[in-house]
Write a protein that binds this DNA or RNA. Sequence first.
DNA 1: ATCGGTAACGATACCGGTATCGTTCTCTAT
DNA 2: ATAGAGAACGATACCGGTATCGTTACCGAT
Lengths: 339, 339
Amino acid sequence: MPTKKRTVTIQDVAKKAGVSVSTVSRVLNGKADVAGETQEKILGVISKLGYTSNLAARSMRSRRKDLLGLVVPDIGFPYSIEVMKGINRAIAESKFDLLVYTMGDVKKSGAVIHEQHYVSLLNNSITDGVIIVASAAAEFITDAPIIAVDPHVVNPSYPSVQGTNYHGALDVMKYLLNLGHNRIGFICGRPEIASAERRLKGYKDALKEAGIAIDKSLITDGDFTTKSGYISSLHLLKLDNRPTAIFAANDQSALGVYQAAEELGLRIPDDLSVVGFDNISEAKFVGLTTVDQFLSEMGYIATQMLIKMVNNEKLDVQVHKMPTRLVERTSCRALEPVH
Amino acid sequence: MPTKKRTVTIQDVAKKAGVSVSTVSRVLNGKADVAGETQEKILGVISKLGYTSNLAARSMRSRRKDLLGLVVPDIGFPYSIEVMKGINRAIAESKFDLLVYTMGDVKKSGAVIHEQHYVSLLNNSITDGVIIVASAAAEFITDAPIIAVDPHVVNPSYPSVQGTNYHGALDVMKYLLNLGHNRIGFICGRPEIASAERRLKGYKDALKEAGIAIDKSLITDGDFTTKSGYISSLHLLKLDNRPTAIFAANDQSALGVYQAAEELGLRIPDDLSVVGFDNISEAKFVGLTTVDQFLSEMGYIATQMLIKMVNNEKLDVQVHKMPTRLVERTSCRALEPVH
DNA sequence: ATCGGTAACGATACCGGTATCGTTCTCTAT
DNA sequence: ATAGAGAACGATACCGGTATCGTTACCGAT
């Protein structure tokens, strides 16, 4: 083993300064009971030795950590990024710092152990509270304050911020129907995710209301990725009676529709109308009409709610519903004169 | 204070199972010295009580944490995201987990205290080692294994992964000069960042070598943001003798050039050629010619190097140089016939 | 002179785990 | 019968901080 520089501890500081650890601790925490002269000497020693306090040790005794945890499924998803922007904004306005824990998508040596691990990580260990984004992971956490953004379960037992997925999907469908489309394909999201199911229900209900029979061949699988959007839309567009519009459960898979359309020589919106969901930053570049669900704002509000919980303040609402808004760009066109 | 559910500790498990904490600890760590029957009983109690071990407590005594820390300036930057993709990949292949610490850009109550705080957070507290991206923060860390991606200092005292910024810039300039451009504007990055300066030097040296005098009015300030790119290029394009091409220090600011060009009614590439740096995912959508510096790969390699360090293995190289590659898209055109 | 109050600081228990060593019990070899 | 080995488990110190209480010295008031 190579000689490792030992970590400087509070003991080392105390010895060097000729005082007890108690006094050093008092200085570190800005307590009043210290003579000015002593304080200066200790601060001098601290900076000379380059001492920094050990968070693990401190957090064990004093419960305050001024640290919030964030669990996201995958940090590379544009979806996650948007939410995190809002979280960062709220964090910057607060006294808290943020620790992000990402599970990645790859399961390693025994998923159970892995989940156990990260739960223990956040549970009361080192953070005051946890924000959980698009996951069902919160079910494991029992004691720490916790809030979910877009939870994967329908009626979570903890506070949450949710988009109005159903209404958003309804808006999209009304828009497309109004443009004269009646053969509309749908690319599903991951079925185990509540918001994906809400969007699918919106798709179906809108068709019912318009008196259009649901054609099951127009509803295809998907998992929110660009690749699945590509595969599913390729399938849809090769149908004998192919849809004139495709509604993808999120923007990522809508981008896959663009790929498939290009490959088949179909122009958007001339030959095919496309709508997504989420309004990620890439959507703007390709001109994708989509539903803005104010992801950043959701992250911002969730963080503020969590901070209230950590401070033992009461929440105004347990479930914060975030309204959606249709963002019209250039990926759709009318089939027949409107009305 | 509302009644808080107390955290379940190893003591609770031991009491419930009728054994000592030592035995529970043995089971948790998979030690051999436990009878099969006892082990099953303890595991039963653990899952019944929903016990999860406290990372802070564990990491204090046993130094192994199986956790790597990551410090990024701002999680919202496309730059950071690319690097993190590679880091995530390496993490997924390892036994380690990842904890991301973001500083945000807003300075809060006393920058010193803030930096102190996060340094102590990572230093030996809860992670085995730290990856630092695009920052000078590493200077504060003395004892933990640490690696930097694109460090902000020229000769860091710790291992690092760096792009070949100078050569990348040289390639861009040769490309533009070869297309017949000789009035080329440059939008700077943040001057305190080493890689930004390297790119600027590449710009200047290429002009010198081509025998073109450097026109200081063509070199404008910037800070890597889209907004600064917009402002600076607006300035450049309103010059009496405006440049025929603009080389932006990164893709983000190159996107600002697009905004300015559109506002002034200039078409890209017909009226103006643009080149960026980084090859972020947005660059593909707008067809921006840029320099790929394989950010994801840099993150991947850095993580692998750090893991070696944590395992006390020797590194092959202290500085890993990552070559760059010019990615030609549709944002440039030739002014005169080449050669 | 005695007392109470306060400023400044030290001693010690404790947070929740792990490492180390010690103890008990059973089994086998002599 | 007794010693020695090994299996299974308990007791205790310790990690590096903070919380709590105790101690000392000095002050002015009675």
